[in-house]
Design a protein around this nucleic acid. Structure first.
Lengths: 109, 109
DNA sequence: ACTTTGTGCAACCCTGTAGTTGCAGCTAAT
DNA sequence: ATTAGCTGCAACTACAGGGTTGCACAAAGT
């Protein structure tokens, strides 16, 4: 259960601009920071910082191609995060079910 | 595709204290803001604010019981968010698969 | 009636971080 | 060789939001 990594993913996804970046990357397949900045209302530097955060979360990876760095999405991590959340939801559900059961038992002793 | 709601969920989950609150609620079933504050290193007011954020995201609901407000988790929303992320991951995956296919076709024309 | 305990509202502080600008260093084209 | 385009680093600004304190109000206990 790599919890701190899920945390990083959640933090990364909490930012609108970062989600936009992910959208752009997903639809373009690959892109450099400069290119991405051209499609957003922010500077290249801001994009670079966001890409760093996304990279920390494992949601994106970049490889150098000559003088530019091409970034792309990493679906596995996102899928992993989704699974973790789903699992958490299940835990909550069983919890609530237990509570409810106990409450009903308590009503007619 | 209620995207803005997913956004709210992500923002809500991005906070460590809020995740702790969710943990506490999940394990206790129900709790008031004051009680929860007792188990955390923050004031009741901070807890109240966090609960408001969680409520906006639909992850938590509170009902008044006399003079106190009891909060509990809402697993359905979390499950929904998990499904949305999973779906997104799938989109990315097929995208990358397409890119890769095109690249391989391009290599041997 | 008085006290206790829980909530709600408002103003305030302060840190984190999204965003900027500026410059230096590579890589590639001319 | 020089220019153009992309990256990386650093210092700086500004604002959102996590947290606090203080007070007023409502519901229960004594």
């Amino acid at each position: 259960m790599s919890r701190s990594l899920l945390d990083a993913v959640l933090v990364a996804l909490a930012e609108p601009t970062r989600r936009q970046l992910l959208d752009l990357l997903a639809e373009r397949g690959e892109a450099s920071a400069s290119t991405l900045a051209g499609a957003l209302p922010v500077t290249r530097q801001a994009v670079v910082k966001h890409l760093a955060v996304l990279d920390d979360a494992g949601l994106v990876s970049g490889r150098r191609m000559g003088r530019e760095v091409r970034y792309r999405t990493r679906p596995e991590r996102l899928a992993e995060a989704a699974r973790d959340l789903s699992e958490l939801a299940t835990v909550w559900e069983t919890r609530l079910a237990t509570i409810k059961r106990l409450a009903e038992e308590g009503e007619r002793p």
